[in-house]
Amino acid sequence: MKKNSPAQRAAITGILASLAIATAFLERAVCAALPLPPGVRPGLSNIIVTFACTAMGFPYALGIAAVKSAFTLLSAGVWAGILSFSGGMISVTATALLLRYAKKLSYAGVSVISACLHNLSQLFAVSLLSGSGAYWYLAPVLLLSGAGFGLLTGTALNAVIPALRKLFPFIKKG
């Protein structure tokens, strides 16, 4: 098979999408056992999406985030699906823009900003759909958790990138 051919990129996108779904599923199962404030999630699938963004490009990462949101919609309900979609689209767009223009930031810095924007866009979506601004009381908790978990997932991405490069040696560097 020709290296970096459309077929190969489609196959890798499929693998990354299934990895994103698997991490999201695992995360939900683990978080269900923990007394976390509403909306607080580690966002482990962010590792996969950011990798897709840097290695394959914005459209592929957007597609992976959309597939993950569709899985959330089917498995966790309409509200969770809407929140996943709104957060996913904003955070992937932010990640792509930051990777392109904020060259001085590390993956951890990019993840921190995109995680916080992910959480804020979810708050915006909930407020818009419910017609209530009361949900903004969650903003400090969600910003703080976004910063903490963004730092964690960005650092994790740095750690797993060498292994991912061995699997996909031909993909571009970010």
Binding site: A102, K104, L105, S106, Y107, A108, G109, V112, I113, C116, L143, L144, G146, A147, L151, T155, N158, I161, K173, G174
Partner: peptide, 17 residues
């Protein structure tokens, strides 16, 4: 590839905190 952490990362972290 990007480094693990950079000085510029402190700016968004400080703003958020």
């Amino acid at each position: 590839d990007r480094k693990l952490l950079r000085g510029a990362d402190l700016i968004p972290l400080a703003v958020i905190l």
